[in-house]
Amino acid sequence: MEVRTIKVFTTVDNINLHTQVVDMSMTYGQQFGPTYLDGADVTKIKPHNSHEGKTFYVLPNDDTLRVEAFEYYHTTDPSFLGRYMSALNHTKKWKYPQVNGLTSIKWADNNCYLATALLTLQQIELKFNPPALQDAYYRARAGEAANFCALILAYCNKTVGELGDVRETMSYLFQHANLDSCKRVLNVVCKTCGQQQTTLKGVEAVMYMGTLSYEQFKKGVQIPCTCGKQATKYLVQQESPFVMMSAPPAQYELKHGTFTCASEYTGNYQCGHYKHITSKETLYCIDGALLTKSSEYKGPITDVFYKENSYTTTIK
């Protein structure tokens, strides 16, 4: 009895394709271990004539594949690729409408935090270190965002349907971005203890939790000093293409032309909904596939993004 075979390709990165001759009487799992086709788990399936010449994702289970996976995804987590594939199996079914010149995501599976993050990423200057993220990001900007969303979920250790947080998501993504040249110098002034300067680099240099107003941050924000008295913390120097200011959701007025974009969060910790506000020729609110415009805006804002380049204080 002759062994019926077909020729397929296996890959971990969709760049390096490895030619395989597979036995049609055995499952993919018996031949390769966990195997995925377009995100779908085909591990328990036997090869079919229609699979001839198709590319299958496999887990990096030998040295060659491990090197290829690390170079593309910059992670050695053995569960990463499987999590990416199972997320992709959902995100490829989502709709990605162009809204006001940006790629958004039609609401499904509690994905409003991903839509808000995706919209924000198209408006701030950011370059990702893992080629996987950078490639998928370019495709997302062009309207094909399924891979990018699935990668975000995998890097953030999230599953489809789980509630997510924009600030946490951005923080994970910033860790995989090139923020080497970003720098922030802060000064804390206390009447009792004097003053202390701190220099922050990388992710810490672009994120701040405690106030939404970048102007206020430049002037000074009140913080408790270690001595128990009130101290003032203010920005001395900022070198970065953008800054992200966050605070627990509270009524906040966004003035046209003073910011790049913002995240609105309605609801409580267990259950809520994100919308995205962007400042173009007027203010726009993007909620999944829905767009509304207004000249002014007041609502429960939790993150505001500002364009920056270089700032030095005039406070002496």
Rank of each mutant, 00 (worst) to 15 (best):
Y252M: 13
N111F: 05
V58H: 07
T75D: 00
E281L: 02
C227F: 01
V243T: 02
P248T: 10
L173W: 00
G39T: 13
A132L: 05
T10Q: 09
T120M: 11
K316A: 15
N111E: 03
S171L: 11
T120D: 03
F148H: 04
T19I: 09
L212R: 04
H273V: 05
M209P: 04
R66E: 10
L200P: 01
C156F: 00
K219S: 12
Y155R: 05
V22D: 03
A247K: 10
D38A: 09
T258V: 04
L102M: 12
I6Q: 10
A154K: 02
C112M: 05
V221Q: 04
L283G: 00
N129Y: 07
D287P: 01
N14I: 10
K280G: 13
A132C: 07
K201H: 14
V22I: 11
T120V: 13
D165P: 01
I286A: 02
L179E: 01
H90T: 12
F56N: 01
Y113N: 05
N16F: 07
N61P: 10
D62E: 10
S263W: 07
L153H: 01
K275S: 08
V160A: 07
C156N: 03
Q123I: 07
A205K: 05
S181W: 13
I152A: 10
I124T: 04
Y252T: 13
N157S: 07
V221R: 01
M207S: 04
E239D: 09
E162C: 01
I6V: 13
S240N: 01
H256N: 15
H276N: 08
I301W: 11
S240R: 01
Y36M: 04
P224L: 14
D13M: 01
P47W: 04
C149A: 09
R66T: 12
N129R: 15
M26W: 09
S294E: 11
Q123R: 08
D38K: 07
Y155F: 05
N147D: 14
Y96F: 14
N157P: 00
I105S: 00
G299F: 05
K280V: 09
K219G: 06
G82P: 12
G39Q: 09
D41T: 10
D180C: 04
K275Q: 10
D165C: 15
H256L: 14
G267K: 13
S171W: 15
I315G: 15
T278I: 08
L81P: 09
T19F: 12
Y297V: 04
F9V: 12
Y113D: 05
M244E: 06
I315F: 15
E168H: 15
Q122G: 04
S86G: 10
S50C: 12
F305K: 01
V185F: 02
A247S: 07
K201Y: 15
Y214H: 01
G210N: 01
H48F: 11
Q222G: 06
Y36W: 15
K46G: 09
G161M: 02
G202Y: 04
Y234R: 10
F128H: 02
G288P: 02
Y28Q: 05
C156Q: 11
Q230H: 06
V236R: 05
C156Y: 06
T260I: 15
A146S: 11
P47N: 01
E215V: 01
Q195S: 14
P241Y: 03
R141H: 09
F70N: 07
L119W: 02
D23E: 11
T64F: 09
T116Q: 08
T192F: 09
A289P: 08
F217Q: 02
F9E: 12
S181M: 12
S213D: 12
H74W: 03
N111Q: 02
T116R: 02
L118N: 05
Q20T: 13
T302Y: 03
E215P: 04
V304W: 01
G164F: 02
N16W: 07
Y274S: 00
D62I: 06
D287E: 05
L119E: 03
Y234H: 05
T91R: 04
A40F: 12
Y96R: 10
G143E: 02
H48Q: 13
C182A: 07
L291Q: 14
A262D: 00
A108S: 12
P248H: 15
K316H: 15
K229N: 15
E162P: 06
T55A: 11
V67L: 15
N111T: 08
P224G: 05
Q237W: 08
Y214M: 09
I301L: 09
V166E: 03
S213Y: 06
K233N: 07
I286M: 00
P34G: 12
F259W: 03
Q238V: 01
V22R: 03
N178M: 06
P249G: 08
K93Q: 12
L235H: 00
Q196V: 09
N100R: 12
L59V: 11
Y84K: 06
V243L: 09
N309K: 14
T313I: 12
S294C: 14
K44W: 13
Y72T: 06
G164H: 03
L59W: 11
T27I: 13
Q195L: 13
F128I: 04
S246D: 06
V304F: 04
R66D: 08
D41Q: 09
G33L: 01
Y208V: 14
T103M: 03
F242W: 10
T226P: 13
M209V: 15
Y306G: 04
A69W: 04
Y137M: 15
C156E: 02
Y269R: 15
A108H: 02
V99M: 15
G228I: 02
T232N: 02
S171E: 06
G33Q: 06
A142W: 07
Y72I: 05
T75E: 08
A205Q: 00
G53S: 11
A145Q: 03
P224T: 14
D165A: 10
A117R: 04
K158F: 03
K307V: 14
D109F: 03
A145H: 00
S263M: 09
N14V: 02
E125I: 05
S25I: 15
H48Y: 07
L114F: 03
L290V: 14
